Simulated scan of single mutants.
Amino acid sequence: MELRQLEYFVAVAEERHFTRAAARMHVAQSGLSASIRSLERELGARLFVRNTRSVHLTDEGHALLTEARHTLANVTAAKDAVAAVQGLLRGTLTVGTLQCLGAVNLPAILARFHASHPGVELRLRQGGSTDLIERVRAGDLDLAFISTPFDEGAASGVTLTPLAAEPMMLACGPTHPLRDRDTVDLRELREETFVDFYPGWVTRDVVDQAMAAAHVERRVAFEVNDVHWLLDLVGYGLGVAVVPEVFSHKKTAARFIPLAAAPTWHIAIATATGRHPNAAAKALLSRDDVRPTS
């Protein structure tokens, strides 16, 4: 098995098309196809289901994809380590992130990193924590800034480095009866209609657990996947929400009130366990502005 075969395999798996994969790798399609067939013969398994329009991974192909990405990442890390000794920093750094990170100003961090290391190609992917963790585990991302899963089993195969924590707050409309309170107890929210993220999003999981501990059965009428939608719905009085404190810095009509015994929102950096980070990832992780807050 050759590294070039793995590179071709990953390209076809990601493009789901032999012609596009060949163009991406700057090779003739016939040569790429021959390399994939050779790899399948060597492994004794079909890696793709082919049709006239696209290709799809078989179960064996899915199993190989994660390991192939890890292998190629380790080779890249080895090359980058040699380049780093020579005073060079190059390659690609793919970072995942939530929409809002509170204590972490990721755009500013990436801008400073780019100024220091212009030879590194930066890529950014945004999503929910569960999706980002899976993409780190699969090798799609070098690292991700996520909120810590309530279910620790969801982070198997991923190392989480705590970065920051902040209390969650009640968000309500500008005419809501609780808008001028100094604090609110979760038990006072029994009759409220809620706006929240989809089940499986870590922020939602944290709130669900906190409400269950307070013996409050809540009704989530509005489920969203965007911070601004959530705040707009709350601002128009369609429901209340329990959100990280950082949301209060957004431009919104919503009002924010501290919670008694507030649940805590934790931010961490996710990296793949057992996979050597490349030199660019190491350089980013070593920066003072991404180190855990005291």
Rank of each mutant, 00 (worst) to 15 (best):
W229S: 15
A254E: 10
A111N: 08
Y8K: 05
A78Q: 11
H249L: 06
G91F: 07
L43C: 06
H215L: 13
T293L: 15
A22M: 04
S116P: 13
Y236K: 14
H114I: 02
A155Q: 06
D142F: 01
A115V: 05
T148K: 06
D180R: 14
E42Y: 01
G173N: 06
A268R: 05
D142C: 07
D182T: 14
G173L: 00
S129Q: 03
A165F: 10
R187V: 13
A253E: 04
L132R: 07
A73T: 12
D80N: 15
D289Q: 07
L163C: 11
V207D: 04
T264V: 15
A281Y: 00
R137D: 04
A73N: 15
R53G: 08
F18Y: 15
K251H: 14
V240S: 03
G157N: 03
F197L: 14
M211Q: 02
R69I: 09
E152L: 14
A108R: 07
L259K: 00
R46Y: 10
D289Y: 02
L98V: 12
L110H: 08
V224H: 06
D288Y: 03
L89P: 02
Q209N: 04
R4S: 03
T293I: 13
R219P: 05
D59V: 09
D140H: 14
F194W: 04
L124Q: 05
A221K: 06
A210N: 05
S129N: 06
L93T: 01
P174F: 10
L72T: 05
A111G: 09
L64G: 01
W229I: 15
T193V: 15
R218F: 02
A138E: 00
R50Q: 09
D180S: 12
V75N: 09
V246A: 15
A81R: 10
T58G: 01
E7G: 12
T264H: 11
L259I: 09
A13L: 03
L170H: 08
P177D: 08
G87Y: 07
E14R: 00
A144W: 02
E2M: 09
V242E: 04
G87V: 08
V207K: 01
G200Y: 03
P177R: 01
H276T: 15
D131H: 00
L238V: 01
T264C: 05
I36H: 02
Q126R: 13
A171Y: 00
G200W: 05
L259N: 08
P199C: 10
G157Y: 01
D182S: 14
T203V: 13
H26K: 13
A28K: 13
V202G: 04
L39S: 08
H17I: 08
V243E: 02
S33L: 03
R287A: 00
E134T: 11
L170Y: 04
L89K: 00
R37H: 10
H249W: 06
R135Q: 02
Y236W: 09
L101V: 07
R218M: 03
E67P: 02
F222S: 09
V49T: 12
E188T: 02
M169W: 00
